[in-house]
Write a protein that binds this DNA or RNA. Structure first.
Lengths: 202, 202, 202, 202
DNA sequence: TATGAATGAGCATTCATTCAT
DNA sequence: CATGAATGAATGCTCATTCAT
């Protein structure tokens, strides 16, 4: 890869990043190409040497966001053998993502972005991971019997994302690590019907 | 109130209704004044004899939506003396609202509408009602001890709205009354830590 | 004439008066029918029961203004036998008109009103009166010999109207009666080439 | 300054020029952006890459007009040492300006343009130049004693501009050079109270 | 490839005029 | 006749997209 290709990729990445910021703040229809270019530090025309039009940039922003989120989740899944630890790490990961990429988090996972299909894909992917876990739990006996794994999973996802959305505007109310711990407790209570002594909310 | 004033109010109401439909479908920036006028069955100029501009119509749509939602909730609160019954009626009400005003529900309560302050007001108002209930429950002993009422309430609200949002695209999966029952179970489990035998999910 | 006709004429007169004010302030294109109706204290539709359209109202405003100005001038002409007295009265009349109908004065006689034909008619009528006087003066020997009456008349008219226009924004600089006296001196100097001792500027 | 910047300036200049023509003909409110763009030979949107809105273009038209007029006047002032010659050159200059930029002349100096502040600035600037000359004349003895320089100057300006305005519609009545000569005679008579033999109107 | 001036279709908004009451 | 809500053509302005440099 030549220096020129590097620069091209760099410019493209900055456009995607700027697009994420502006799309997240204003929505697709509210976003201005000129604003995105300005934030990216390039001329408006440059955007069109990398993407055919506004919608293509938006799609790319969503695609990159999706990959980032799913990669993070996969990492959290693969890290620990212990279930409770793994859950906690997963929640810490999602809290960190929300903290770092606030607007992108909202675009992808809470509100914003409207009916975008990629948004559904991400949420479904996350939900499916949890559904599989819960099914395994029912088999292995650690999951609360009688529950519908899909229903439980969607409740969890809704609760977690809604709380993170609220937290983004109220970060001073709860520290990030406390929030992650509480979220993993919520999930355990919903999934297993018990709270581990060590992590019980004081 | 003369016949003429009646007609004026009627026209205004049709504009708000049409605005709700179009704004909910396309968002503020995506909505076209011409589409709203067409749906309302009036000329484009008519909109401007009732509202100074597009944003003012949007604000009014949100305001009316907020009042409708809160009025329905208050009604559900005041109806039954028995807590479980009251909860079920409340969930039936919110399911019915989502079913009838699908797009408006999303605009006000799930995604869409972006950062609108009225949206926050509605969600906070609903959350506050639940927080007060939970505090009462802690005093009266029926609520699960050790919980943070605000945290529980936000989890519930997130779970319920997320599920309703999902259900709007998957109505064939669960009948409305079953959904309402399950939602009230979710809330009971989260708040009280028990499930009544009669309503346990099969 | 019945009471109803009286009222009709009254309404019409108020529309013309309001039109004069708004047209003078904003010009024909800048004037808003709604503003004129508001100033006249009637509904917008009422305007159209008296005049076919905006231009017709403007024409009427100009026509009435022209008649008022010319009637005042004719009055001043016919009042006094003595030439100097007559001139002074004429200037006093035009100063009074500018003072009372400031905006209308500008519309008709100085700036504003654009290329309106009535405006030209008024100015030409006023100029013609003076041209006839000057021709008489050349015959009778009191007018400065060698002058072109038309040229002199136009200079006088331009000077007088320009000064009045300036005075309207600077009424505190010169009292109305002093202004009228000075204007008649200017005209005498231009026409006769002499200043009467009694009226010389102090 | 690159070729590209040159083109941008060229476009801007054409917009100002076209704006002058259309504004002068129709007034600010009567002017159509589409007409200005058509005359300038550019697309409507181009106007907005150079000026924020219609009023800003109008302001620029007036500003450029003011500079042009004042530059011409200054040039005439500085050219000749002899007072009578200088006056004649000044009048020839203003007649030429009216002849070449007829509508702009009216916009800036006679009627049109309404209450525009730049219009006042130009007229006041021109008047002030003459006031200073007359004060000098009173000191040096060549000006008619007993006059108020400000009053005289305003009369002159009014007379000259009114005659030029009339002349624009009646160019066949008087040749341009004769007009300039007569205007300078008018000014000399008003200011000095004498007419030079050589230039006396035949 | 990068630029940004130019483009022009698209849109929100205005406002003279109409007409049912 | 008076009213003012409704009308819709006209207009100013926006902004995604193009293209000459």
């Amino acid at each position: 890869m030549t220096r020129r290709d590097d620069q091209k990729d760099e410019t493209r990445a900055r456009l995607v990043s700027a697009g994420a910021a502006i799309f997240a703040e204003k929505g697709v229809d509210g976003a201005r190409i000129g604003d995105i270019a300005k934030v990216a530090g390039v001329a408006m025309g440059t955007l069109y040497t990398h993407f055919p039009d506004k919608d293509a940039l938006f799609d790319e922003v969503m695609r990159v966001g999706k990959e980032t989120v799913l990669a993070g989740l996969e990492l959290a899944q693969s890290t620990h053998a212990d279930r409770e630890q793994r859950d906690l790490v997963a929640m810490e990961g999602v809290v960190a993502f929300a903290q770092i990429h606030g607007p992108l988090f909202r675009l992808l996972l809470s509100r914003g972005g409207g009916d975008n299909p990629v948004r559904r894909e991400v949420i479904n992917a996350i939900t499916d991971i949890r559904i599989r876990e819960l099914r395994l739990g029912l088999e292995q006996g650690w999951a609360r019997q009688g529950q519908d794994p899909e229903f439980t999973a969607r409740c969890e996802v809704g609760a977690v994302f809604h709380l993170l959305d609220w937290w983004l505007d109220n970060k001073d109310r709860i520290p990030a690590d406390t929030l992650a711990r509480r979220l993993s407790e919520v999930r355990r209570w919903g999934a297993e019907g018990r709270l581990d002594e060590d992590h019980r909310t004081s």
